[in-house]
């Protein structure tokens, strides 16, 4: 009789660089689906209006920032026939996604302790699932956004038209997801190791909306001196991993001039964040259960 063959799992301490076990992730891909499904379900389970909130929350923020912008005269710095509402929404949509990646992703491991300490599973899925459910939110919110664009096109009798650059949206979306995954892996693992981040993360997102020029035009970084000379501080935004993405969304949707250097910086940042985030995550993953 021949001995049946069994899969061998070898358990031993790992040293040095630890790669991602892609085969395992693919094998357990259904688990990722269930985790995303869980996050989406739970988020809206008890709210009477359920998923409507995915639409209303960004909409209310857009209205607030639009009113502030009009009252403070920020909207005058936007060129062309672009309705300020659309201008704000075009940036807020990707920003809310990053916001979820930072705050939800950062807390994802800490708030799923049982999944770390009571069972073995591909732990990368836990922060990944946060991004998955954020994608669902974004798609819902996008439907409203397109409706809004249609409304303004009709209202201005075609004076405002979205830019043809929208064909680049899928590529920008990919970039957005890449950097969001990177920051999520990094922050989720860091939060397990250093609980202080629980308190720091809210500040990151609150400051971030200003430092990324989401709720006002980037034109404010061009400073006119009294003697008529002009200093352009926008290159500083290259230090912000997300500024280029946000600006490019505006370029794609309302046709604002593309800041190529910022976009290039954001692409570089996305790769650095993803690779660095994954490496750090894998490096400290084996200690999660000891600490969590």
């Amino acid at each position: 009789m021949t001995e049946p063959t069994y899969d061998e799992t070898i358990i031993r301490p790992k040293r040095g660089f630890i790669g991602v076990d892609w085969a395992e992730l693919i094998k357990h891909r259904e688990l990722l689906y269930f985790l995303v499904w869980r996050d989406v379900k739970i988020k809206y389970k008890q709210a009477i209006f359920g998923p409507v909130w995915a639409i209303v929350v960004p909409l209310v923020q857009v209205i607030i920032y639009t009113l502030i912008g009009i009252l403070m005269g920020l909207s005058s710095r936007v060129q062309g026939n672009v309705p300020y509402t659309v201008y704000i929404y075009a940036a807020l949509l990707p920003w809310l996604f990053i916001n979820t990646a930072i705050s939800g992703g950062g807390m994802s491991l800490v708030s799923n302790q049982a999944l770390l300490s009571k069972i073995y599973m591909p732990r990368l899925f836990i922060p990944t699932a946060v991004i998955g459910s954020a994608i669902v939110d974004m798609l819902l919110s996008m439907i409203v956004f397109f409706g809004l664009i249609g409304f303004f096109v009709a209202k201005t009798h075609g004076h405002f038209m979205p830019s043809w650059h929208v064909v680049f949206l899928p590529a920008l979306f990919l970039l957005l997801v890449t950097s969001a995954l990177g920051i999520t892996y990094l922050l989720s693992a860091l939060t397990v190791m250093f609980r202080d981040l629980k308190f720091i993360i809210p500040f990151i997102t609150q400051l971030g909306i200003w430092l990324t020029a989401v709720n006002y035009p980037q034109a404010f970084f061009i400073f006119k001196h009294a003697d008529g000379t002009v200093t352009d501080y926008r290159p500083w935004l290259m230090l912000n991993p997300f500024a280029g993405i946000i600006q490019s969304f505006r370029w794609a949707i309302v046709g604002e001039e593309l800041q190529t250097s910022q976009l290039m910086a954001s692409i570089a940042w996305a790769l650095v964040l993803l690779v660095g985030g994954l490496m750090y995550f894998k490096r400290v993953e084996r200690r999660f259960a000891d600490i969590a």
Partner: peptide
């Protein structure tokens, strides 16, 4: 169960 990593030594699970 592979939840925590041993400090040293090794184990093989077949199946």
């Amino acid at each position: 169960s592979r939840i925590v990593e041993p400090t040293s030594g090794r184990a093989v699970m077949r199946g």
